[in-house]
Design a protein around this nucleic acid. Sequence first.
DNA 1: CGATTGCTTGACCCCCATCAATCCTCGTGG
DNA 2: CCACGAGGATTGATGGGGGTCAAGCAATCG
Lengths: 227, 227
Amino acid sequence: MGKCEQCGIRQLNAFKELTKDELIRLSLCKSSKEIKKGEVLFDEGEHINGLYCVRNGVCKVSKMSDNGKDQIINLIKKGDLIGERSLISNESSNLKAVALNDVEVCFIPKEEVIKNLQRNPNFTMGMMQKLALSLKNADNIIVDMAQKTVKQRLAVTLLYLHENFKTEEGINSIHLTREDIANIIGTATESAIRLLSEFKKNNLIDLKGKEIFVLNIPKLKILAEGL
Amino acid sequence: MGKCEQCGIRQLNAFKELTKDELIRLSLCKSSKEIKKGEVLFDEGEHINGLYCVRNGVCKVSKMSDNGKDQIINLIKKGDLIGERSLISNESSNLKAVALNDVEVCFIPKEEVIKNLQRNPNFTMGMMQKLALSLKNADNIIVDMAQKTVKQRLAVTLLYLHENFKTEEGINSIHLTREDIANIIGTATESAIRLLSEFKKNNLIDLKGKEIFVLNIPKLKILAEGL
DNA sequence: CGATTGCTTGACCCCCATCAATCCTCGTGG
DNA sequence: CCACGAGGATTGATGGGGGTCAAGCAATCG
């Protein structure tokens, strides 16, 4: 089991604020976990009782709607924390997290997180800034959902994937299914598929099997923002 | 000018965690402000450099979409804080706040808030919990926007208004226009109006001028959740 | 008392959800 | 090694939801 004080991933989140002593203490109580593709890290309503830190891989974070569809709220990757919201509110989770590929996470028990929040104001401030950023992103998504067409939202999502997950193999290195993509956008799977092939016809993207290649970022941006 | 240590409104937010000394210090640096109906408390892109605490009245909090529509993200009332997100992120505001009726707010300068965050862990925890709650609410709104029909969202909104702003005069004591309601739901004004009169025909609500009376909460709930 | 702002209703039509059928692609077991 | 089954991808057809334009009405205000 690795040691937190030697783990570079903490530079990507609030744990960078911890002192060496605090990191050593963290190493003693944290646990590591491996999750295979498709497995559930935690589900809605579950008491997480701690905080997950993603070391590797990608999870989709979703919430079930009344109509039975899983709306994907977020994609989390290396360095991201998940579970802080429920931890701070002292509630069970309002979200579900599922591995899109093989994922490694560390789990830090709630008591240890709270202890650090009480002792280290810099750590607390880091966590607050993370929450504040999440809130801003959420506000942006609300506006997009409310005001943009499905086509625009697909363009936004493709640009987001391109920005965050692009490899030489395409922008879908995390193996989202068409249904996943539809559940990010908030539309029917068939609609997403139809728009993808329309985008391909217009040479905005290329499709090779399930993989997606962005060909024309500027035009996608124009599409995403207006008519 | 009132004194914070005698102000009961702090019981409604994180300021309840401040000590008497801290409250007295707060009184010395805070300022009060009155905003008339329709006036702008702050706009997108503005540097707020502090935190507002609503003493009275209601503001609509919105964000401009690329298509030029103001999507209403939140309605804030007595006891609510606004500006914390930008303060913590050290950014200019991503939101706009406009008074729906005459509003009184207190303004606390950034430096004073930061000082209290550094010194009083309980206050910090209170602020974090507020952010965490806002985030959960935002997640719920995203799911509703993505997965519910306009009709369902109107039902949700009417129930929300009933829950939070109902008086004997109806549920629209804060004088939202039809356009405002449409901008909460994320639809065209005409669509919102049409659905309101449909709801009236079905005896779910009653309309007297601009005022709205909820007649059948259970049916509205059923409508809001499914078919 | 005009004039601006908000409310309401009608007409039109496109976007998109839904249902259905087919094709493709794997992983599994015979 | 191949057959087959299951889940995913794709395309077609169809109908309704809801966006948009336009016109008329009501209310509020300087």
